[in-house]
Design a protein around this nucleic acid. Structure first.
Lengths: 413, 413
DNA sequence: AGAGCATTTGTGAAATATCACAAACGCTCT
DNA sequence: AGAGCGTTTGTGATATTTCACAAATGCTCT
C-alpha cells in the first residue's frame, strides 16, 4: 500500500532542500531538471545528468535564465501560457537562443506565480504519465517555495521582463501598469512610444555599452525601459521637452545614426518608432507599429529612408489591409499582370519603368535619369505601357491604384 | 379537466378547414390572423376583426404576400430566422412596406417549411403565454397543411424569393442552388454578376414594363433572375457572347441609360454591377459589391461617372477598409485638418483646391479651369497649401495619402 | 542573310508648367 | 479712413513636357 502511494506520488513529504527535489524529479523522469523562481532566478538544478543544452548551461552559470531566452519565451507566448495554467506545457526547441525541447510547468499558489520547473527532454520524450508526475512535483515545490518566500520577499519583477510583458500585450490594466512602473522607480509620464534601433549584427555586451552611451548622453530622449532582441534594441521612450515627441524622435534617430557611424563606424542602422500614446497598455500596439516601420524601411530602402514614425508612413500604413482585402476577393491588377507578361516575353523593362515613373511622381525627367535612359525612350515606353496595360495616365484613380498595387506587390511578393 | 386541457391547448383536434383554424387563433389572441403557405400564398385569414394594416390588405386582395414585403423580410433576415426555428418571432413594423407590428411563426414538419402564421398586434401586445399558444396553433396547422400537401404538391419556390435567398446569402450550397435553378427552368451557365439599375423614383408596374421591354430587347445581356427593391431593379445577369462580361455589361448600361432617356425621358439612372463569378453562392458578394458601386457613384458623381463594374472601382474598393483601420488607430491627416482650419478662419478654399488639384492629376491648367480661377491664383494657393499643410508635392507617398484621405473624408463625412 | 518588328536615340517645334514680380482687390483691425 | 495682410490677377521670361518624325539599333524568324 505504501509502495503504491509512492509510485503514485514520489514527491510526497518535504525534502530537505530544493536541490533534493530537483534530483528526485530528475531521477523519476530521467531528464535534467531546473527549478527557477518567479523572476527566472535559478533556485536548484539536478546534477545526475550530463547531457544538457546551451540555455541550461547559461542559466546555471549565470544563476539566472538569460534575458535572451526570457524574451524569446515571452514573444512566443510560452510564459503567459505557463502562468495561466497548472498544467505542464511542452516547449519546442528554439535553437536561436540555444533552447532544446523541454517541458515546463509553473509553480503557483492560487493565482500567484512562485516559480517554474523545467525538464529537458534530452534523453527521452515524456509520456502523459510523466506529465502527471510533473504536476505533483510542482505541488511539492510549491510548499518548499512558500517556506522560502517568508512574507517579506515578494515577487520582484525585473525591468526587462516587465517590459516584455508590456510589449507582448500581456499587461492590459492601465492602473496596474502605472503602479508597477512607480514600484520600478519609473515616473509614468506623458506620451510614450516604442523605438526600435536595428543593427546589422546581433548586439553583444560591448556593443550594447556603446549604444547605451550614446542614448544616455542624449538629453532630448529618455528611455524608460529597454530590451534587446537579437539585433534590435527596443526602447520605451518619452521626452521632457515640449516639442512633439515625433519630431524629437526623428531628430534623435538622425543624430544617433550619425554618431554611431562616426564614432563606431556602424552603418546600416534601421530605426523606427510606433504610434505615440499616453497609455501604457498601448505599448504592444506601438511596438507592432514600430516593427512595421522597420519592415517597410527594409523593403523600400530609398523611398522610406526619411520615414521614421509610424504616423508618417502614409500609404505604407494601409498596404497590408488593402492586400488582405485583395486576397480575399482574389483581386489582380490586370494592367500589371499584362505588363509583367509582356516583359517576360519581350525581355523589356516596362513594369519597372512604370514603378519608377509613378514613384517619381510622374516626372519624366527624373524618371529617365533614374533609369539611365533617354527621355524619349521613357516617353516611348510610357506609350507602350498605356497601350498594353490599358492605362490612362490622366486618370488619377487608376494611377493611384497602380501605384498602390505596385507597392503591395513589392511588399508581399 | 377537459376545460383545463382546452385552456392549455385550444387548438387540439382537427378543424374543418384552415379558415376555422385562423378564426380560432384570432379569437383566442384577439388579433387578426393570416396563414400562408411556404411560398407566401394566402391559405386562410381570420374575419372577425376589422382593424388591419396595408400589407395584410394587399395580401388578402392579391391572395399572396406582395413581393415588396417578402423582399423586405428577406433583407431584414426575418424569414431565415423564422425558417430556422419553431418559436414565434416578433417583427417590428416596417412602414416602408405597410407592415404593422406583428408576430410570426413558421409551420414546419421536421426541417421542411410548410407555411407561416402571422398575427397582427393591432389591438394588443401578445404576452408570453399568447406566444406559447401560438406555438400550439402552429402544431395544429401543421397537420392541416400536411393533408393539403398530398405528396405531389411540393414546395414550389417563386423565382423572386429564390433570388432574394441568393442575394441575402441564405443559400450556400452550390450544388443545391444549381439544382434549384434547373428546376426553375434556368440553365446555370458560365460567369454571372449582379447588376443594379437605380431610378430616381420607386418602380411601379407600368415603369417595370418599360424597363423589362428594353432589357429583353437587348440581345447581349441575359437576365436570369430579377427582383425589385424600391427604386432599384436587381438582376442576375450573364451573356452568351464571348467578350468579357464586364465589357458587355458596360456597353449594356450605356445603351440602356441612353434608351431610357430617349424613349421615356428618364434621367438620373445609376447603374453598377458587382464582381463576376462562376459560382452562384457568391451572388450575395456580387450584390453587396454592386451596392458599393452605386454608393460610390452617388458620392463621386463626376469622378465615378464612367465606372460601372466593381472590379474597376480602383481605390474606391478599398476606401472602407482603410477608413476602418484609420478609425481604429484614431488617425487624422494633419495636413487636411490644418487646411480645413485655415479655410474656416480665413474663408478661403484651400481644401477644395487641393482636392480638385489632386483629382485632376496635378494638372494646373485643368484644375484652374475647373475652379474657374486664374492659373496664377492656383499656383499661389498651392504654395500656401504646401506651407500650411507641410506638404511636399514631389513626394508621391504623401500626395497619394492626401488623395486617399480626401476621398475617404468625402465618403464618410 | 535579310525582312520585319520592337526598341532606342536624336532633333525640333508646340504646348504647358513654373517662377518672379507688380499691381489691384478685399477684408479686418485700430 | 487707411494701414496691413492675404488674396487674386496680369505680364513676361524660363524651364519642362509632349508630340511628331526620322534614323539607328537589336532581335527573331524564315
Amino acid at each position: 500500500m505504501k509502495s503504491d502511494s509512492y509510485t503514485n506520488n514520489p514527491f510526497k513529504g518535504t525534502f530537505g532542500s530544493l536541490e533534493n527535489l530537483a534530483d528526485t524529479i530528475s531521477e523519476v523522469l530521467h531528464c535534467p531538471v531546473t527549478i527557477e523562481d518567479a523572476n527566472h532566478r535559478l533556485l536548484a538544478y539536478s546534477t545526475h545528468e550530463n547531457s544538457t543544452d546551451p540555455a541550461r548551461i547559461a542559466t546555471i552559470i549565470g544563476r539566472r535564465v538569460p534575458e535572451k531566452v526570457i524574451n524569446s519565451l515571452w514573444k512566443d507566448g510560452v510564459i503567459p501560457e505557463l502562468q495561466a495554467s497548472d498544467d505542464p506545457l511542452r516547449v519546442s526547441s528554439i535553437s536561436k537562443v540555444g533552447l532544446g525541447d523541454r517541458v515546463a510547468i509553473s509553480i503557483r499558489k492560487n493565482e500567484e506565480i512562485l516559480g517554474y520547473i523545467w525538464v529537458l527532454e534530452v534523453n527521452r520524450h515524456l509520456s502523459d504519465e510523466d506529465l502527471e508526475l510533473l504536476k505533483k512535483a510542482a505541488q511539492a515545490a510549491k510548499n518548499q517555495l512558500l517556506q522560502l518566500y517568508t512574507g517579506s520577499r515578494r515577487k520582484q519583477e525585473s525591468l526587462q521582463e516587465f517590459f516584455w510583458k508590456l510589449l507582448t500585450g500581456h499587461s492590459r490594466n492601465e492602473e496596474a501598469i502605472q503602479d508597477s512602473l512607480r514600484e520600478l522607480g519609473i515616473l509614468p509620464g506623458s506620451p510614450v512610444s516604442v523605438l526600435i534601433l536595428q543593427f546589422p549584427d546581433e548586439i553583444d555586451a560591448a556593443f550594447e555599452k556603446n549604444i547605451s552611451y550614446i542614448t544616455s548622453v542624449n538629453q532630448s530622449v529618455k528611455a524608460q525601459l529597454t530590451a534587446l532582441d537579437e539585433n534590435q534594441m527596443i526602447m520605451l521612450v518619452t521626452s521632457a521637452l515640449k516639442e512633439p515627441l515625433s519630431e524629437i524622435l526623428q531628430a534623435f534617430i538622425q543624430s544617433f545614426t550619425l554618431q554611431m557611424k562616426e564614432r563606431f563606424g556602424v552603418r546600416e542602422i534601421t530605426a523606427g518608432f510606433g504610434g505615440i500614446y499616453s497609455s501604457y497598455h498601448l505599448t504592444e500596439k506601438s511596438y507592432l507599429e514600430a516593427l512595421q516601420v522597420i519592415k517597410i524601411k527594409n523593403r523600400f530602402k530609398e523611398a522610406a529612408s526619411e520615414l521614421y514614425g509610424y504616423e508618417n508612413l502614409g500609404i505604407y500604413q494601409f498596404l497590408d489591409v488593402i492586400h488582405q482585402q485583395q486576397s480575399a476577393s482574389r483581386y489582380q491588377n490586370q494592367a500589371l499582370t499584362k505588363l509583367k507578361e509582356y516583359d517576360r516575353l519581350h525581355k523589356t523593362d516596362l513594369y519597372n519603368t512604370l514603378d519608377t515613373y509613378l514613384s517619381a511622381g510622374s516626372n519624366t525627367h527624373l524618371t529617365a535619369s533614374l533609369l539611365h535612359i533617354h527621355l524619349n525612350t521613357l516617353t516611348y515606353r510610357l506609350k507602350r505601357i498605356a497601350e498594353i496595360g490599358q492605362i490612362d495616365f490622366k486618370n488619377t484613380n487608376q494611377k493611384t491604384m497602380l501605384y498602390l498595387d505596385l507597392k503591395i506587390q513589392q511588399l508581399f511578393y
